[in-house]
């Protein structure tokens, strides 16, 4: 089954500007079932053979779509997320970077009474290699079908980790980029929980960053519930405090935000913490061998 995306995924794309259209084509060539695209003024047209709808509501009614990916520009992205949630899409993935925090406060509050699960924003999306299901911006060719799940705040670190895993011959079940913003839909803890409860995932890589306390929340969950092997890495050990390191969420403002505190919490929870981002793949390989999983 895997999580979030699988062989039953019917994907729509909200926002088909240059990047949206580009990544829709890449998802199609990866083998993903893209059933529609949304553009408020181009309903009835086609984009690369995909029918365009003017609203998410009409796309869902006509195609039975169950996942949406959003590339809508930041000023309008909150509206796009709420439109997808109103159409009761079970999974909504928002790639857009730079959404005002106040907009995400509104969205997060509205989604608390919705069945939709939001991934992101400011994230690379989700991919389930075994089902050729790609709802994101990641280069598809680095992924290998397998049984290790990946959760990361950063996009390019998903690629880095996956390239290392694939080079070790370790395939991936589902990779989830939860996003680099201070307010995100699905937290690292929730993503770890999804993978922990997934029978097709044997082990988990958790890639965190400085700032906030989401890694500590994930660590608490891991300590109480996760028996599967977990390898963790926290980016930003060398970042100066008080500066925003690209991701709006990556700013150290309290002790919880420091890399060292996050690493300690994860190690105490039983995760194997890699100090070097270059050794995440080899650390997972050793851990799986020591557990007799490979």
């Amino acid at each position: 089954m895997s999580v979030l995306l699988n062989e039953n995924t019917r994907l729509i794309v909200q926002g088909i500007g240059t990047e949206g259209a580009n990544h829709m084509r890449r998802s199609i060539s990866y083998g993903t079932n893209v059933v529609g695209a949304i553009h408020p003024r181009r309903g009835g047209e086609e984009q690369d053979g995909v029918p365009i709808f003017s609203t998410v509501d009409s796309a869902v009614r006509e195609t039975g779509a169950n996942v949406s990916i959003i590339f809508v520009p930041a000023p309008f992205a909150a509206d796009a997320i709420l439109e997808a949630a109103a159409a009761e899409l079970p999974v909504v993935i928002c790639i857009t970077e730079g959404i005002p925090v106040a907009d995400m406060v509104r969205v997060k509050h509205a989604l608390s009474s919705s069945e939709s699960m939001l991934i992101g924003p400011n994230c690379p999306g989700v991919i389930t290699p075994s089902d050729n299901a790609r709802a994101g911006i990641m280069p598809g060719d680095i992924f290998l079908p397998g049984r290790v799940g990946v959760v990361s705040r950063s996009g390019t670190l998903v690629y880095e980790v996956v390239a290392q895993l694939t080079a070790e011959g370790i395939g991936q079940s589902t990779c989830i980029g939860v996003g680099g913003d201070p307010i995100i839909g699905t937290t690292q803890k929730q993503a770890v929980q999804l993978l922990n409860e997934d029978p097709e995932t044997d082990a988990i890589v958790l890639v965190g960053e400085i700032g906030g306390s989401a890694e500590q929340d994930a660590a608490l969950y891991i300590q109480e519930h996760v028996q599967k092997p977990v390898v963790a890495f926290i980016a930003g050990a060398t970042a100066p405090p008080g500066r925003r390191m690209g991701h709006a969420g990556a700013i150290i403002s309290g002790d919880d935000g420091k890399a060292e505190n996050k690493k300690q919490a994860l190690a105490a929870a039983g995760a194997v913490v890699s100090d070097s981002p270059a050794e995440i793949g080899s650390t997972m390989a050793e851990l799986l061998e020591s557990k007799g999983i490979r």
């Binding site: 950063s154 390019t156 680099g180 890495f233 980016a235 050990a237 060398t238 990556a250 070097s276 981002p277």
Partner: peptide, 17 residues
């Protein structure tokens, strides 16, 4: 010079290591 905030931070960490 790195693409992606996470990889940029991780690159700094690796240089330090």
């Amino acid at each position: 010079i790195v693409n992606g905030a996470g990889l940029a931070m991780a690159t700094m960490d690796t240089i330090k290591l």
